[in-house]
């Protein structure tokens, strides 16, 4: 769907390049996570992909064609879900959606989308009276108004309660299942892990890693199993390598001790994020 080759970008006022020659591909039907600390170039890359910024060096291809060759028709095929509310506060939700939808040729049916995100009952309320969570859900409906082939999602579950976050995640998964492609950025690593087929980590304008969450966990995790067991009223911990679990020592422990927990040495995406980018997720920078 998107192919990016040796992309370089510098803001006119900056001395240094913000994007320093990145390469990646987003395949049709996949959910592609794009992760990185603030200031790493994540936002700039997204702006370049949605043509909000123009690039001089490198290549971006969308649907096999140079992105430069697209005019505003490009936006018929994409939907962008912003992190912050993007609606006219003194218009109702339906007035907002009606205004934006009429800018497109393709029109999705608004009612099922609004019902799905739980806003149909409040469709005639002024958006200014919506809660933050409602505005974020409305953003997703806005992004889907034109039946896009590709969705850009920026922190789509940020500010949502677990029930609504689940609905939004289900909708994203269904969108991809039906052939849509998703470019997702989020700091909620459990969401990224749950949704993304592949993820890329960008740091200081360069892509450090691209792979599936599973492969990354194998690469960055430890091939060990840690067993906690009780003996003499005390908890003991013993670690085995993956090869050692085939030995009698492991089987013996399992058979003879009171095992409390068993953990594989698989790491989390959060740990990988910290390791790759060198930045902690909470209180980053």
């Amino acid at each position: 769907m998107f192919t990016v080759k040796d992309l370089v970008f510098k803001y006119p006022k900056n001395a240094e390049d913000t994007i320093k020659g990145i390469d990646f591909e987003i395949k049709q039907g996949e959910i592609f996570g794009f992760l990185g600390p603030s200031g790493a170039g994540k936002t700039t890359t997204q702006k370049l992909l949605v043509k909000l910024l123009a690039y001089d060096k490198g290549e971006i291809h969308f649907d096999g064609k140079d992105l430069h060759s697209f005019n505003d028709v490009f936006y018929e095929d994409i939907g962008v879900c912003f992190e912050m509310p993007i609606s006219f506060s003194k218009l109702t939700a339906m007035e907002n959606l009606d205004f934006f939808q009429k800018l497109y040729k393709n029109h999705a049916d608004i009612q099922p989308l609004m019902e799905r995100v739980g806003l149909w009952e409040d469709r005639n309320k002024l958006v200014g009276e919506y809660s933050k969570g409602m505005k974020i859900r409305l953003n997703l409906v806005r992004a889907l108004l034109n039946k896009p082939k590709m969705l850009f999602l920026d922190e789509p579950t940020n500010g949502l309660d677990p029930k609504n976050a689940r609905i939004v995640k289900d909708m994203i998964r269904e969108f991809a299942h039906n052939g849509g492609t998703v470019f997702l950025t989020s700091h909620i690593m459990s969401d990224v892990d749950e949704l993304c087929d592949r993820v890329a980590f960008i740091t200081d304008g360069k892509i450090e890693e691209i792979d599936s969450p599973r492969n990354l966990k194998i690469k960055y995790g430890q091939r060990t199993v840690t067993v906690e067991y009780k003996e003499d009223n005390q908890t003991h911990v013993k670690r085995f390598t993956m090869d050692e679990i085939k030995t009698d020592a492991f089987a013996e422990l399992m058979r003879t001790k009171e095992v409390e927990t068993i953990h594989s040495g698989e790491t989390t995406l959060e740990e990988i994020f910290i390791q790759v980018t060198g930045v902690k997720l909470h209180g980053e920078d």
Binding site: V50, L52, N71, D72, V73, F74, Y75, E76, I78, V80, F82, M84, P85, I86, S87, F88, S89, F100, L103, Y104, K105, R142
Partner: peptide, 14 residues
Amino acid sequence: KEHTISSMLISPMT
């Protein structure tokens, strides 16, 4: 302030 100008920019209009 309401970011609607950005929302219009990612629509098929110049």
